[in-house]
Amino acid sequence: MEPVLDWLQISVLALIQGLTEFLPISSSGHLILVPEILGWPDQGLAFDVAVHIGTLAAVVLYFRNDIWLMTRDWSRSLITRQPTSNSRLAWWVILATLPAIAFGFLINNGIEESLRNPLIIAATTIGFGVLLWWSDIKGAKIRDEHSLSFKDIMIIGFAQAVALIPGTSRSGITITTALLLGLTPQAAARFSFLLSIPLILGAGLLKLKDLLESSTPVQWEAMLGGALISFISAYIVIALFLKWINQVGMAPFALYRFALGALLIYLFI
């Protein structure tokens, strides 16, 4: 049975989803941990669908011009066999998504559920925080997303598959890897955000399929409210992150991960 959520839970959980989906701090980790810390029941499948729709709408709206150019040039290149930078970028998004899809099918047997442990999340939060900071220090920061090669894409794609482990952060691991490959922080973030679109869409469709097959009633006001809050907060995060990331760097996010990991260890050890 789907839980009945009050507006405090709806607002907090949707805001967390919107704020953390695109920051390198793990949205899944927060959505697992916040209800556990506050003693709230699991938010349920319907709410997960709603907040995924909200964040997907935010990233699609923000990158609507890029998506249009990538789609147009990719479609033309299938006929003309003459690639452009936009058609290559579209191919890179498609190809870099495949390892995560394959890995997702492989662990779709309960392994992921067994990893939803606060101490495992603490370890991945801290460990990948160290790697994020190190990549910010060591990365050359001279390339943009259009300079990526097939080899680069496969490396980023397999790194993204690791993010299926709770606490890793999909955006965090893809930005980390892109930085180590020499991309600027803004270029790394832009490619990470574009790369999120097929995965958020796929995850949302799978959850929606499960929801449609379920006979439990849906709290539609919770879904609509959650989708709207996650959409607004995610759009603001994307815009501000891309505006400031070249100046701010990854250190604040790494430090946040260290603090969060330490708090989890303190609370659950």
Score class of each variant (00 low, 15 high):
134 W>M: 09
239 A>W: 15
189 A>K: 03
231 F>V: 10
19 L>R: 11
137 I>C: 04
61 L>P: 07
18 G>N: 09
4 V>Y: 07
108 N>I: 03
157 G>P: 03
209 K>M: 09
3 P>Q: 07
42 D>W: 09
61 L>F: 14
166 P>R: 04
260 L>C: 12
217 P>T: 00
135 S>R: 13
21 E>A: 06
23 L>R: 09
191 F>N: 02
232 I>F: 13
134 W>T: 06
265 I>E: 00
259 A>T: 15
243 K>F: 00
157 G>L: 01
157 G>N: 07
86 N>K: 08
191 F>V: 10
128 F>I: 12
208 L>Y: 02
23 L>F: 05
200 I>N: 05
69 L>P: 00
49 V>T: 08
188 A>G: 11
33 L>V: 14
146 H>W: 04
163 A>Q: 02
91 W>Y: 08
223 M>Q: 01
262 A>G: 06
147 S>F: 07
7 W>T: 11
138 K>Y: 13
209 K>N: 13
201 L>H: 02
153 I>T: 12
83 P>F: 10
135 S>E: 05
177 T>I: 02
39 G>P: 02
118 P>S: 07
255 L>R: 10
244 W>A: 08
187 A>Q: 12
88 R>S: 14
158 F>D: 12
194 L>C: 05
1 M>F: 11
243 K>A: 14
30 H>Q: 06
247 Q>D: 14
53 I>R: 02
247 Q>I: 02
231 F>K: 07
158 F>L: 13
106 L>K: 04
47 F>T: 04
51 V>G: 09
257 R>P: 06
94 I>A: 14
84 T>K: 04
70 M>Q: 06
31 L>W: 11
261 G>M: 10
248 V>Y: 05
47 F>S: 03
65 N>C: 01
198 P>L: 10
143 R>T: 06
93 V>W: 02
60 V>C: 15
154 M>W: 15
81 R>Y: 08
13 L>R: 04
224 L>M: 14
138 K>G: 00
151 K>Y: 10
205 L>S: 10
216 T>P: 00
269 I>N: 08
51 V>E: 12
33 L>D: 02
38 L>G: 03
130 V>Y: 13
125 T>A: 14
158 F>P: 01
121 I>H: 12
85 S>E: 15
188 A>M: 01
251 A>E: 09
124 T>R: 08
242 L>A: 14
98 L>E: 03
149 S>A: 04
60 V>R: 03
76 R>E: 13
121 I>S: 09
115 L>T: 03
26 S>E: 01
223 M>C: 14
252 P>V: 11
